[in-house]
Nucleic acid binder design. Structure first.
Length: 483
DNA sequence: ATGTTC
């Protein structure tokens, strides 16, 4: 299959893979992209995966893919699919192994010039205080009972235990806690992996970044989000560590068995799924919610250590330094939401796998401070180019079940990056851009090299051009901690 | 993403 030929042009930002391209498709697949991005998108199996997702039982609307689409497990990364809340199927491959991998944006009252002379000390403090790297362990020793509370209460547990402030919860998607998260649906093995790792960044594409607000595009939204030009911000990208990974692994095995036992017809075994209303489907959703809560507690603890790091370096309190959360978004999760789409409306389960919720103004899920503005959408690029702050727009509600992109997206596979890039080149590039880098592993530097990623501007231009989001601000890195 | 093939 020549996938570039399979794309039918809808407009400058939308390409349709029509129902029938893959035999079992129940609906079309629509990829948000510019024409120039199509060869890259068609260079791996991602378009086939977007088409395969259209075979998911109970899917409503189109199978969607964001412009940062690339090859994933079952679903493409960048994939969005909504299924009927009563009759639809839930698929762990539509959420991903790193359940509630997500991004948190924190603002400060500090300006670039306040931080530049202390930047090395700040990066040392952040590297010391926030555990990072493959197999990294948290600083808090948990027992089984505490871990169960983390799984059930998420960020609420963290704040209740001294990691952050009550108002942080309002600035977290879902309040940092999925309802219905029952720890008894999480295996002992997942719990065992989760206990030592809570409060750690991890490895891979996870990072902690200190940025400066470089350009503001929407003064009104930026003001509502507490952002202004020249301000120093911190971006945290991490997930549910080995705990979420084990939950995904456990339930993929169980759902594989469900699919075989019940003769569910799927184009790819990696799309293993079960009715949301079935015992196994409901148990997975509950366990996934536990994984999501773990990730929120994780980012909340890291937020606390970020505040402590600034307090130490700037000899002032986090309150008086204005270290406040802007927002925390999940980008690997399934959520029960009410939506309208072409041809219907109602309660659905939205799978977002490498895609961010991007609710337009007016949605009741948004905190009051953002209700009239829209949801902050935080879109990190590669480690050298920084992060975009976008805001959810009406187009997302009508076209993409309130969703947008989650990052630049990989251009090269990890293997390909290791083959063609050297750690020294990455370090030099960061130095040339005057970005202070703290990293424990040359291997992860190479896998996450800037040249292994797509161009963030191109990705953002598509979601803005398609009306899914609006541009608010661009953040440029001055310091990066890589796992 | 990940105790990178329990």
């Amino acid at each position: 299959m020549k996938w570039e030929k399979a794309f039918e042009r809808v407009d400058d930002h939308r390409w349709r893979i029509p129902k029938g391209t893959v035999e079992c498709m129940r609906t079309d697949a629509v990829v948000f992209a510019s024409e120039g991005m199509l060869p890259s998108i068609a260079s791996d199996n991602a378009p086939l995966q977007a088409a395969n997702v259209a075979c998911l039982p109970g899917i409503v609307g189109d199978s969607l893919a964001m412009p940062d689409i690339h090859w994933g497990y079952g679903f493409p990364i960048g994939g969005v699919a909504a299924v009927d809340a009563d009759h639809g199927y839930i698929s762990p491959g539509g959420i991903g192994f790193d359940i509630n991998c997500g991004v948190r944006l924190i603002r400060t009252d500090l300006r670039r010039e306040d931080v530049s002379k202390h930047l090395d000390a700040l990066m040392d403090a952040l590297y010391l205080n926030v555990p990072s790297g493959l197999g990294s362990k948290g600083l808090k020793k948990l027992n089984d009972e505490e871990l169960s509370k983390v799984l059930e209460y998420g960020s609420e547990w963290a704040v209740r235990n001294g990691y952050g402030w009550d108002r942080d919860l309002e600035r977290t998607e879902e309040g940092g806690r999925m309802e219905g998260a029952d720890p008894t649906h999480v295996s002992d093995r997942a719990k065992k992996r989760g206990i030592p790792q809570l409060g750690s960044l991890g490895s891979g594409n996870h990072f902690l970044e200190v940025d400066v607000v470089d350009e503001v595009f929407d003064e009104g939204a930026a003001k509502a989000f507490g952002l202004s030009e020249g301000m120093v911000t911190v971006t945290v990208h991490c997930g549910s560590r080995g705990c979420g990974h084990q939950i995904a692994t456990d339930y993929l095995a169980d759902m594989g068995k469900y699919v075989r036992d019940n003769d569910v017809r799927l184009p790819d075994p990696q799309l293993a799924c079960a009715p949301l209303s079935s015992d196994i489907g409901a148990r997975y959703f509950s366990a996934m919610s536990c994984g999501a809560n773990y990730a929120w507690a994780n980012r909340q603890m890291i937020t606390h250590w970020v505040r402590e790091s600034f307090e130490k370096v700037f000899s002032d309190s986090a309150e008086s330094l204005g270290i406040e959360m802007v927002y925390d978004v999940a980008h690997n999760i399934a959520k029960k939401e009410r939506h309208a789409w072409e041809g219907g409306s109602g309660d659905v389960l939205v799978h977002r796998k490498g895609a961010t919720r991007a609710f337009a103004p007016g949605r009741p899920e948004l905190p009051m401070a953002y209700r009239d503005v829209g949801q902050p959408v935080i879109v990190p690029g590669d480690m050298s180019t920084g992060t975009y702050v976008l805001v959810g727009a009406e187009g997302a509600m009508t076209q993409s079940f309130g969703s947008s992109c989650h990052g630049a997206g990989r251009e090269m596979s990890r293997k390909q990056a290791v083959r063609t890039i050297r750690a020294g080149d990455v370090k030099r590039e960061m130095r040339d851009r005057s970005i202070v880098l703290r990293s424990g592993s040359d291997a992860s530097l190479v896998e996450e090299a800037p040249s292994a990623y797509k161009d963030l501007e191109t990705v953002v231009d598509v979601v803005v051009g398609a009306g899914l989001t609006g541009k608010v601000a661009r953040l440029t890195p001055i310091g990066v901690v890589k796992g």
